[in-house]
Amino acid sequence: MGNPVQRPLPDIEDPLYQAHFQGLKDQQLRVQQCDACGQLQWPPRDLCKQCHGDRFHWPVMPDQAVVYTYSVVYRAPHPWFKEHLPYAIVVAELENGLRLLGNAFGADVEKIQCGVRVKAHFQHDEDSGVCFLRWVPTTS
């Protein structure tokens, strides 16, 4: 039988990402915004790419997005994903242009296309204490 395989986990205590991961637990998409100039940026960086400021806050983004690009995976690059094949990696673009990466699982992953509208779902894993982002197509 052996031990169950652990999904690759992020470091939710990483100071640069902590506010984002706490946001996911609170069912919110939080990204980095520069205190000085207001630049939104993702992924988070030590310095603002626009003004090089180093103080940030973490506003909540809308949970609706459009698929910018995607990938449907048929061969698992890590054993945890084997039982979830095929799964999709979805890069979804918010209205403000920021793109956040998440998964889509389930029977209809092969219907994921660029331009499809998606909504953020927050999948909490009790064992690890990590919340993962899923992008789910909206039926409309």
């Binding site: 999904r7 690759p8 986990l9 992020p10 470091d11 990483d14 640069l16 990402y17 992924p43 990938s71 995976v73 698992a76 690059p77 890590h78 945890w80 994903f81 979830h84 799964y87 990696i89 990466l101 998440g102 998964n103 990590v130 993962f132 982002l133």
Partner: peptide, 15 residues
């Protein structure tokens, strides 16, 4: 970009 990989991509099976 090791922190990007580990925090935002590997957990989603982009490896």
């Amino acid at each position: 970009g090791d922190d990007i990989r580990r925090n935002l991509e590997y957990p989603y099976g982009m490896i």
